[in-house]
Design a protein around this nucleic acid. Structure first.
Length: 290
DNA sequence: TTTCAGGAGTACG
DNA sequence: CGTACTCCTGAA
């Protein structure tokens, strides 16, 4: 299905469909990426980083190899047929429009702990600031992975490291504000034995219960982590954008957060997560509902 | 130049 | 159910 051709220190990947880097990285699901001046994207995942250049003949993945490509295959959810998903969802005329706006979206499979901490930071916060805080945390607490475009690249630290971080340091160096103690406490709970991998075996609702026990994790953050790290396709995170957009495009009146979540679940069912991503990207870029 | 409102939610009363 | 919470940006 895909063709992998070694090229220099990288890999040319041919035949990728439903894959657009801008759509994937600006739809709000991930923070560990950078747009380079040449239009390529650099992203960091689980102790590795890759730079991806779009070309006529495919996508050039720099700093990886055939042996290592499995990591990115999994991360970019390449086993999934998004053509089929889009076909199903397009029966809804509103979604058809939304999909046309971000046809290259894929839902990444991100690291659970990193995703958990990232979305705790996202509470009442904005994407540029969230990205900055996460970068600063990696720089201070993560491992040095290498240099790209004369930038030092660091991994995101594990729970064993952040459990020992000082709230005051997180506040001062990473600018996380009132989220400082939530980050340390959640890291401590995970470090002291809460098995995040166990959530892979649970249903979306069971996983949500477990996550919401953690400080800094409410319904929105839990749904995000379940969708972006645990592959729970029926998760439907409702933030202020999705709220406005659902009120505007589907419901037609002011609706409580909880009811919007139920509504999304009702009309999109097991595909709610994909629908949410297409709608979010579409609504935010067009400023729908504001 | 300086002030000021408000924002990808959660916790707490 | 209302409010406080940080910090940063951009509007005035």
């Amino acid at each position: 299905m895909y063709q992998l051709i070694e090229e220099g220190d990288g890999l040319l990947v041919k035949g990728l469909k439903d894959f657009d880097l801008k759509d994937i990285f600006t739809c709000g699901q991930a923070f560990r990426w950078d747009l380079e001046e040449d239009g390529s994207y650099t992203c960091i995942h689980k102790g590795s980083f890759v730079n991806i250049v779009k070309r006529e003949d495919g996508f050039l993945f720099k700093n990886t190899s055939k042996e290592d490509f499995g990591l990115w295959y999994e991360y970019f959810d390449l086993a999934r047929d998004y053509g089929q998903i889009k076909k199903e969802l397009s029966k809804d005329p509103i979604l058809e429009k939304a999909i046309a706006y971000g046809p290259g979206i894929r839902i990444l499979n991100q690291d659970p702990f990193e995703t958990l901490i990232s979305f705790i930071i996202s509470a009442n916060n904005q994407i540029p600031r969230i990205k900055k805080s996460i970068d600063l945390i990696a720089k201070k607490y993560g491992d040095f992975l290498g240099v790209f475009n004369s930038r030092d690249i660091y991994s995101f630290p594990g729970p064993e490291v952040l459990a020992r971080a000082k709230a005051e340091d997180l506040r001062q160096f990473a600018r996380v504000g009132f989220r400082d103690e939530r980050i340390v406490k959640t890291s401590q709970i995970v470090n002291e034995g809460l098995d995040l991998d166990e959530i892979f075996n649970l249903s979306k609702d069971e996983g949500k219960k477990v996550l919401m026990e953690l400080p800094g994790v409410g319904p929105k953050v839990a749904e995000c982590v379940l969708l972006f790290a645990y592959d729970k396709e029926d998760a439907f995170p409702v933030d202020t954008w999705v709220k406005r957009l659902m009120e505007h495009l589907y419901i037609g009146e002011e609706t409580k957060l909880k009811d919007i979540e139920a509504y999304g679940k009702k009309i999109f069912g097991p595909r709610a997560g994909f629908a949410q991503q297409y709608l979010f990207y579409y609504g935010r870029e067009l400023n729908i509902g504001k």
